[in-house]
Design a protein around this nucleic acid. Structure first.
Lengths: 111, 111
DNA sequence: CGGTTGGTTAGGCATGTGGCTAAGTATTTC
DNA sequence: GAAATACTTAGCCACATGCCTAACCAACCG
């Protein structure tokens, strides 16, 4: 267990296009920090910073072997975020359904 | 490519516990700014700021009638976020499936 | 009209974020 | 062991965030 991701850090990690691009990239397979940096027109330290934010959000797990740090996606975090959003949306829709019933004049709801 | 210009603001809006609490609150029905403020132990201007962040992220729509501003949830935004996450997670799982096939020594994949 | 209510604007402050360069560390590789 | 590689750390800077208070509208209420 590397990181118990909290929603603050998780959503914060996703709130940046560079980091979302990294997530997409890692969706196709693990990559080193340097590989992540290549398409990014950004210095290596900045890339590393982003990786660390992703790690703090639990989205990415990294492992250093030799001098190369390999990053891979941690899908549980994505799943957690998805679940949070889905639950809120589901609750909203349930409410709308009841409202719809009410507006339809469904008097049977009383009995 | 699937870089909707407002995913930044959307996820940023969700990356704060106060704002997520507001989203949950609004999931139970519309509320005025003051009503949103009540459980929050925070000054009204700060609350308003959060509301504006939610609005910028498309999560909330507000309407001012008389002197009271009513806020309500905009579920399309939640849906957008959910979709983005789901697509990435689906892609990842597809990859893992293929990897599983490969590791199972399924040579037929070549032919 | 005058006061109260509900929100808004303005401005200030501490901290966080995202970027950089320069210099350091730890592995290969020669 | 020197040089190249792949990060990593440290330090700096500009701007954004999240909070506050004080002052300012704009409805309502009487």
């Amino acid at each position: 267990m590397p990181n118990q991701p909290n929603l603050d850090q998780l959503f914060h990690a996703l709130a940046d296009p560079t980091r979302r691009a990294m997530v997409e990239r890692l969706g196709h397979g693990p990559a080193s920090v340097g590989e992540l940096a290549q398409p990014l027109a950004m210095s290596l330290p900045s890339v590393l910073q982003h990786v660390q934010v992703l790690e703090a959000g639990g989205l990415v797990r990294t492992e250093k072997v030799g001098r190369v740090r390999t990053c891979r996606l941690e899908p549980e975090a994505l799943s957690l975020a998805e679940r949070w959003i889905h639950e809120r949306r589901a609750g909203w829709e349930r409410r709308l359904d009841r409202l719809g019933d009410f507006l339809a004049g469904d008097d049977d709801l009383n009995g």
